[in-house]
Design a protein around this nucleic acid. Sequence first.
DNA 1: ATGGTAGGTCTCCTA
Length: 262
Amino acid sequence: MPFSLATWNINSVRLREPIVLKLLAEQGPDVLCLQECKSPVDKIPRDGFAAIGYPHMVARGDKGYNGVAILSKTPIKEAGDFDFAGLGHARHIAGRLENGVTIHNFYVPAGGDVPDRDKNEKFGQKLDYLTDMRDHFHAEAPQKSILVGDLNIAPREDDVWSHKQLLKVVSHTPIEVEALAETQDAGKWVDITRQDIPDGLLYSWWSYRAKDWDAADKGRRLDHIWATPDISNAAHSSRILRDARGWEKPSDHAPVFATFDL
DNA sequence: ATGGTAGGTCTCCTA
């Protein structure tokens, strides 16, 4: 049975309920993973999602920050949540589908503006978060699993609009790229988006601060879909729905999709 | 080099 999933940093699920509904109605992924819901779990507008065919949800939430949720057409069971780096933030939720696939939904800390942990505590927290992710997946090899989310790192030169100009910009510094690679290696995670689309510029985020995000096109690929080797061959049809960045009251992220024949 | 926009919330913090 093929099943499709999408991951989307929604930047307030309550404010953007209309475009979440639009995405679900028009694209119909079986599973939608959201980050930056910025809502307590009991205030997520789940009735609206249920009404159009997504009655199942697992989620974690903080009051005004962070927050992750997995919406599903079919039943999904909670399968744990991590508090990496001991931040006490709602940045991860895992769910298990009836087909036995485990989905990890992450919102990795953005890391502040200065890429130096001595001058910027947030950057240290980001690196610590990635170290704990790495250690976890090293200690316990994930199987039949998909890891998605806003990982807040654009690893490849063609994942950013200018590799050279972003080398010292948080999200594309060599130390972050290395930390992400170590996390990926520790779980033997396969980057599904780049497995399907190996060549060319690919972005999932464009700053709100650009005058004309579409024309300037100064994007970064911060949002990822990874899978374990036992199911990575089943993946296909990856895409990024750039159109959604231009919708009414948009998120600054576009949703990333993949399909798995399982 | 700087400042630009957006969301949430006990007015500034986070991205």
